[in-house]
Write a protein that binds this DNA or RNA. Structure first.
Lengths: 265, 265
DNA sequence: CCGTCTTGTCCATAATATGGACAAGAACGC
DNA sequence: GCGTTCTTGTCCATATTATGGACAAGACGG
């Protein structure tokens, strides 16, 4: 009687059934989360999840009745509702990672002077959870705390993918395929960047999500060896020439290792 | 063609179908949220939701796979997972209410000197969203930000119930019946307290949830007239005799009206 | 080693969620 | 005004999905 394999040590559990609807609702929520305050039109949720329109419509409206989703009067777009942060209050804030990373972020921000981001992996997305503004007058500020994107479209996402087994990374990238076009990229490009990052030891994007910017990201692994987060510097491209790229990468790598020690404690 | 009534002005929409499983999953989540960090054993979720054990088990484990729920190694209890605050980041923090209430809380805290709470209604629960510690050496601190309880078991809950149409209040109290016994109260007691609060103009509990304490709560209504929150003072009973109860209630009532003005803006 | 907890699993069955097809608005052009 | 092309919303027969009774397997205690 060994059907779903064991379930103790290995992480091969996924396929529990009898809850399609719940999984779908969560998939919808994650897409809505990517839309932040502004929210997302129904059609986009349909496209991003691959569900049919009636299904998404039904799910979204039930979630509205439950207070989990809100609808913007003006645009008709759907967004994460009040009740989500209310549920979140059940957990201790700030998280372990944020506490562990705080000194490193402060140190690196002072040393580097450009904008620093701390980004976590959540499912198939990256999520910006902290941001430090540097002292230089020209800062890349367009990415805010809470910003969520498919893994692979930012340098942080590339770094995180590079730090996991190639097969897992491929699976995630494939799962995000439908969402890539909105960011003007595709599976092949992303996989190429991931391979490059593996070779370099850190993630890099010559063309940041913001026009004219460049980003460098190092991954941060949990004690079990899986990448959980990334530390990123973004700056106008001209401020990150080859020599400085090297310098910045070294600082980021050093602090990433420090954070890894700190979460172990 | 008037089936589900209109849908524009009136708030009678509720009964959308085709999503039983999603609603159930959310009901489970709300119970887990009440368990905060410590979480809740399966049996208690079963009891509180009225669902069958196999159903709760299935739901909870799917939510674990999805990262929405976590399980405590030690106790086996289930709790709200990482991904919930991550979804919550999609919303602007702090909320409008928190911003609007801030000056009032500061003022009242200085004037009164005992612990002040701001509590919101969320579904059939109250949820503590802010707390101010006063200057007196003996403070009621056992209720923390994030604490969640069935509407009706705290003075804040009684105040909120008192401020809504009697019929709505009765419906909520009835829905919470199963959860009351854990707080050593029942439907009749709660309804009695609600009636008393309506007469007084504020909620009051001679026997607070903490032994030997007394609490006074005023409700805060949104512009549409529905109570959304409550402002509470808790203190050791001896510090809240009839004369001081009157004083404190007046301050709370004054600040509640101020907050109502502020959220209108 | 047996009773009494708890949590976990199975599977036939009924009920639920599904999605194709159609409808109803909204925004635009002319 | 009237077609055109968007978007979102609804219906309902159908098969897929979630359900829960019954049984199993640990964990604890005496």
């Amino acid at each position: 009687m060994d059907k779903t394999a064991s379930s103790k040590s290995t992480r091969v559990t996924e396929p529990r059934q009898g809850a399609q609807a719940i999984r779908r609702a969560l998939a919808v929520l994650r897409i809505l989360a990517a839309g932040r305050e502004a929210g997302v039109p129904l059609a986009e949720v349909v496209q991003a999840t691959g569900l049919t329109r009636p299904t998404v419509h039904r799910i979204v409206h039930v979630l509205i009745e439950e207070g989990i989703v809100e609808r913007h009067e003006r645009t008709g777009h759907y967004a994460i509702g009040n009740q989500v942060p209310e549920l979140a209050l059940a957990r201790p804030r700030p998280s372990r990672l944020l506490v562990a990373a705080n000194p490193s972020l402060r140190r690196a921000s002072t040393e580097i002077g450009d904008t620093l981001f701390l980004t976590v992996r959540t499912g198939n997305d990256t999520l910006c959870v902290d941001r430090r503004i540097g002292i230089y007058p020209l800062q890349v500020l367009s990415i805010e705390v809470g910003a969520r994107r498919p893994l692979g479209v930012s340098s942080a996402g590339v770094a995180i993918l590079a730090a996991m087994p190639a097969q897992d990374a491929r699976k995630i990238v494939a799962a995000n395929e439908k969402r890539f076009e909105a960011y003007r990229t595709d599976v092949a490009t992303v996989l190429g960047e991931v391979t490059a990052a593996r070779r370099l030891g850190y993630g890099m994007r010559e063309i940041g999500l913001v026009q004219g910017t460049k980003s460098i990201s190092t991954w941060i692994k949990t004690p079990d060896g899986r990448p959980a987060a990334a530390m990123t510097v973004s700056a106008v491209r001209t401020r990150l020439g080859p020599r400085r790229e090297q310098e910045v990468a070294e600082i980021l790598l050093r602090e990433a290792r420090t954070i890894e020690q700190a979460i172990r404690g």
